[in-house]
């Protein structure tokens, strides 16, 4: 697979799988206003996924839907962080803080990529994810510095997802060879600074676990991914070749 395709799939799959999980909150959020807010987040993520998968598809003659619905698990390139089950609302906000802060730094850099399509997608997405960071931040502050129960849950969620964060910054030959890509290892320091500032202000402790999972970028996923894809793909796969 060529590097540009591989790279675009990574970004597109991150956004797609994140959207699939965020979408689970619609009709299940803690209050109506949050159903609407998370609906916006999910729609932004799905919009990014579509732009990126359309671009990826244009590189090897597939459509966004062929990529989303007719690839098997091992062909998906997303971070494991994005596919983990939804968990409670604290987990959702911890994941959004970690992921959107990463996406924000990434898209901000990618805006000046020599690849015009990637730069264009990033230019639009960077504003969307800035809002996601803000939304997650507001909630991490409120949950961390709210009640004893919310503090305990927020801390637990930050801890539970921390071991899935290093994968975001793993550099490899693909990003090193590909001049139009952002090498994510360059983002880690600033990411850590920003996330730490939010966690500190929320009165939670920044997790320190050093063990880190990996594998998503090479198609090795968690057990949860199979179920996620089964749900996402089953209608389309039951009617191959159909138009919807």
């Amino acid at each position: 697979m060529n590097d540009l395709l591989e790279y675009t799939l990574r970004l597109g799959d991150d956004a797609l799988i994140a959207a699939q999980r965020t979408g689970e909150w619609i009709a299940a959020a803690p209050q109506l206003e949050e159903d609407v807010a998370l609906g916006n987040v999910a729609l932004d993520q799905l919009g990014q996924a579509r732009s990126l998968l359309q671009y990826a598809g244009s590189l090897d003659g597939r459509t966004e839907d062929e990529l989303a619905y007719f690839r098997d698990e091992r062909e998906f390139r997303n971070l494991q962080l994005c596919e983990l089950p939804t968990g409670d609302f604290a987990h959702a906000m911890a994941r959004l803080l970690y992921f959107a802060t990463y996406q924000h730094l990434l898209y901000d850099e990618l805006r000046s990529s020599a690849d015009e399509t990637l730069a264009g997608v990033a230019g639009k997405a960077v504003k969307e994810v800035a809002y996601h960071v803000d939304h997650a931040t507001q909630w991490v502050l409120r949950l961390g510095d709210g009640t004893d129960e919310s503090h305990r849950r927020m801390q637990a969620a930050l801890e539970a997802l921390w071991p899935y964060t290093a994968e975001m910054f793993a550099s490899d030959d693909v990003v090193r060879r590909l001049s139009v890509a952002v090498d994510p290892s360059t983002l880690e320091e600033e990411w850590t600074r920003r996330v730490t500032a939010v966690i500190d202000e929320s009165t939670c402790e920044r997790p320190t676990s050093s063990y880190q999972h990996s594998g998503g970028r090479s198609g090795r996923h968690t057990e949860h991914m199979g179920f996620l894809l089964a749900e996402l793909q089953h209608v389309a796969r039951s009617h191959p070749g159909a138009t919807w």
């Binding site: 699939q20 689970e24 619609i26 839907d65 996402l232 919807w244």
Partner: peptide
Amino acid sequence: ISRAPSLRRKA
């Protein structure tokens, strides 16, 4: 939402 058969329909 999780099962919509195309990304356009999902959005």
